[in-house]
Design a protein around this nucleic acid. Structure first.
Lengths: 340, 340
DNA sequence: TCATGATGGTCAATCCTTTGCTGAATTTGT
DNA sequence: ACAAATTCAGCAAAGGATTGACCATCATGA
């Protein structure tokens, strides 16, 4: 490794001033520097392996080309990785890079971490949650371009991206109806969060839209894990007039429903069809048969969030927008025609 | 938001020079500035909400306080998130922050991303893989403090951290032996990777150490997913002299083994005990009964890696070390005494 | 031939901190 | 009481890139 090569070294090697090097390198097709000079400078720069020091240019430009990503992270799901990856990919495409911090549930820590991001002069931050929920955006973020990911807040001045919960549920239930089911049960979550309400609404919408009536005995709620799903599944499938298909709040709940069906000697999908929401491949691909489910687009939300921030930065004054992302159906093997 | 407050503003407000502010703030207990002046400056700085600009100080100090984390990421597991979180937590504790990039399998892209990190003057990078494997560290990383995470390379001059594969397997099999099993089967991976060899070795070690003999019909290999586990499980548990316990290459394989056991009418753990490796909570907690397994310590490896880098940076010239991390047993409900 | 205007390039200031060196004020030593 | 040594602060340079202002050439038109 030779001594570090800066713009100075390039200038000397090319026999021009640093000013010219800067123009040659940055101005797309400069009118401050002759085309052939520009080419020459670029060749020299490449030969020397010149890489601009972004601390310096960031300092001068008042723009670091760094985005912050702060997330809670009390999770065992792959969601965090997917989000981060989506954010990073989008950032990279536009010449940015992302700094990740996570604070668990400690808002004191979170505040300090955000201050740290600010010291690094991040140009914006995406404030992310792993599960769709209402949040209060920390005061530290005031004055910094911010977008919420998988989170919403009362303030309509801040942009956010969340999954379209009711659309997701409709997509799932439509798949069941399309297969011919008319007696469809739902296992919902007990928790008071947007997903719970949105998915119930979507479920009811889909039934109504197809002129099916909802039997209240076919709706049961439980904790959104496998155990909850198993218990709820047992309750639903144990009924005399049991549903022929189950729409589950999540893939984990669906896994519980599988266990319930197995325990009751019911085959999937011959005796009962099941759909979930999440598309946790770890589960959906591992179940037998594979679980048909609706994907929560964490990767895409990550992409969307950073693109939105970057748009904001390049084009200040855009009105904020609260956006919902569609959730695609991922078909595997757990949906079939109703028995009989 | 008032106009940005820099060290200048603090100096003016405190009635001293910027030099003095700098000393007051940075020198732990300065001998360049009177104690009471120091306190006064600090108070003023806090009042004004002063936060140093790290682009500027990084530029001046030739140290950005940023670490890069480059990982492949073609995964659906929560491993990536755990690693990143571990790295971030450790970095935060020492005043650093981490930039994440990921390149999939595209080494051309990877090279460009690493160059991008270098433009941001990262002080070091952790080069991570999601699955323990041999790697060639990219030439771009030459001259930059680097540690390998979940990866090893021929060059002993670079530090690395990987899970102790053979130890992990021994831990798993010991648990089975401790429960009284003597006929223990193993479902191993077909792929030629360190985990495959290490876990087989650990399995055999554990048997030998307890004077048990290994029946070669009790070792079957398959693809390291649920389907592979199911098929292998069927083969193993369908034998007349079937093993009473199964050590599975991974939790997903173990999930397949559960399915095989269920299909054969075998109860877990009454008829057959099962242990896995990975501690994917999504699976291990969701199975019924819960899966006893050995955790791969991704979070801890993340922490270890950045601490190692930071040690290297603060204390250059330390000899490199290839380290293995112990993997703890996580007991749930899939291990019991052998039947009969 | 000489002002006028492009064209192509350079100077020097700037972004914000840190730090070597210098200097003033105060204390110590004799 | 005066020189020497401390103690406490400030000046200004440096770190690498960008950019407004300015300058030198050369060509054009009258």
């Amino acid at each position: 490794m030779a001594t570090k090569v800066g713009i100075r070294e390039v200038a000397r090697a090319a026999g021009v001033s640093v000013t010219t090097v800067s123009h040659a390198l940055n101005d797309a097709t400069s009118f401050r520097v002759k085309a052939e000079t520009q080419q020459h400078v670029r060749d020299v720069a490449k030969d020397l392996g010149y890489a601009p020091n972004r601390l310096a240019s960031g300092l001068r430009n008042q723009r670091s080309q760094i985005l912050g990503l702060v997330s809670d992270e009390i999770t065992t799901t792959p969601f965090a990785g997917a989000m981060i990856r989506g954010a990073q990919d989008a950032a990279y495409e536009r010449g940015y890079v992302v700094m990740v911090v996570n604070s668990g549930l400690d808002s004191e820590l979170e505040a300090r971490e955000i201050r740290m991001l600010q010291q690094h002069q991040v140009d914006g931050v995406v404030y992310a949650r792993l599960y769709h929920q209402g949040v209060q955006v920390p005061a530290e973020l005031d004055g910094l371009p911010t977008v919420l990911l998988d989170a919403v807040t009362g303030d309509t001045a801040v942009s956010s991206i969340v999954p379209d919960e009711v659309g997701a549920a409709e997509t799932a239930v439509d798949a069941l109806i399309r297969a011919g089911h008319t007696r469809i049960g739902m296992i919902n979550n007990v928790d008071d969060i947007p997903a719970t309400h949105g998915r119930l609404e979507g479920f009811l919408n889909a039934l109504r839209r197809h002129g099916l009536e909802h039997d209240s005995r076919h709706l049961v709620i439980g904790k959104p894990d496998t155990k909850g799903g198993r218990e709820a599944g047992l309750a639903l499938l144990g009924q005399p007039d049991r549903p022929t298909a189950l729409f589950c709040f999540s893939d984990r709940v669906a896994m519980g429903a599988y266990q319930a069906a197995t325990a009751l000697g019911l085959r999937i999908p011959e005796d009962v069809s099941i759909v979930g929401i999440d598309n946790l491949e770890l589960i959906a691909d591992s179940l037998w048969p594979g679980l048909t489910t609706v994907a929560l687009p964490h990767y895409d939300m990550g992409r969307w969030a950073v693109n939105r921030i970057l748009d904001d930065i390049e084009n200040p004054g855009m009105p904020a927008a609260q956006t919902q992302l569609e959730c695609p159906l991922i078909e595997r093997g757990s949906v079939g025609p109703p028995p009989g």
